[in-house]
Each structure stands twice: as C-alpha cells, then as structure tokens.
C-alpha cells in the first residue's frame, strides 16, 4: 500500500489542511517511509485477537440524561476569533 501525490491531496482534504501542490510529493515520500515501517505489524499473527481500544478495565460510567451545566455564553465565546450577538461567526456557507 503506497501513498502517491493524489492520495496525499485526498488525505489533506479529509484532514482540512491546505498542502501546496509542490509539497505533496515530499509528504508522500515521508508517509511511505512511516507506513513501510509500520508494515512490520503484518509479521504478527493476530487471528482471533480482539482489538484493545481501552485499558481502563471499567465500563464507561453512565448518568442521567439531564442538563448539568450551561448558561456560560461569555465563557464559551471568550476565545473565539469572531462572534456577534452570542454567536460564532464563520464565512458564509449558503448563498
């Protein structure tokens, strides 16, 4: 599984990171270096091995589905680049 320029452009779009055309080949080479190294994992027989996603050993705690916090508009907006009237401001998304 080898990454080419087109794949880099696709990953960059999924990751929402602008990667200039002239950087794409260099990144493809780097990613291929890393991916060929992690391919070592294919030496390991993992047939019938359950994936381990969490080491906590406890189930996720549950709580009542009720509001426990809120009404903190000023705090939520304290670090935003742009806001107005208690809302986030972003570039126009509909014409």
């Amino acid at each position: 599984m080898s990454v080419d320029k087109t794949t880099v452009a696709k990953i960059a779009r999924l990751a929402r990171i602008h990667v200039p055309d002239e950087r794409q080949q260099a990144i493809a080479t780097e990613l291929n270096g890393i991916l060929s190294w992690v391919d070592e994992l294919n030496e390991v027989d993992t047939e019938n091995v359950e994936p381990l996603a969490s080491v906590t050993g406890h189930a996720l705690p549950m709580r009542k589905d009720v509001v426990t916090d809120g009404d903190r508009i000023d705090e939520v907006l304290a670090n935003v680049p742009e806001s107005t009237g208690g809302f986030f401001v972003v570039p126009k998304v509909v014409d």
């Binding site: 294919n42 993992t46 091995v49 359950e50 994936p51 381990l52 080491v55």
Partner: peptide, 14 residues
C-alpha cells in the same frame, strides 16, 4: 489493515 491491526497488537503487548 492499520488501525484495527494495531489495536490487536496492542492487546498482545498488554
């Protein structure tokens, strides 16, 4: 191929 494989190896390490 990558993510689940790595998580299976993670269990073997544990």
């Amino acid at each position: 191929a990558y993510y689940l494989k790595a998580q299976r190896v993670r269990r073997l390490i544990r």
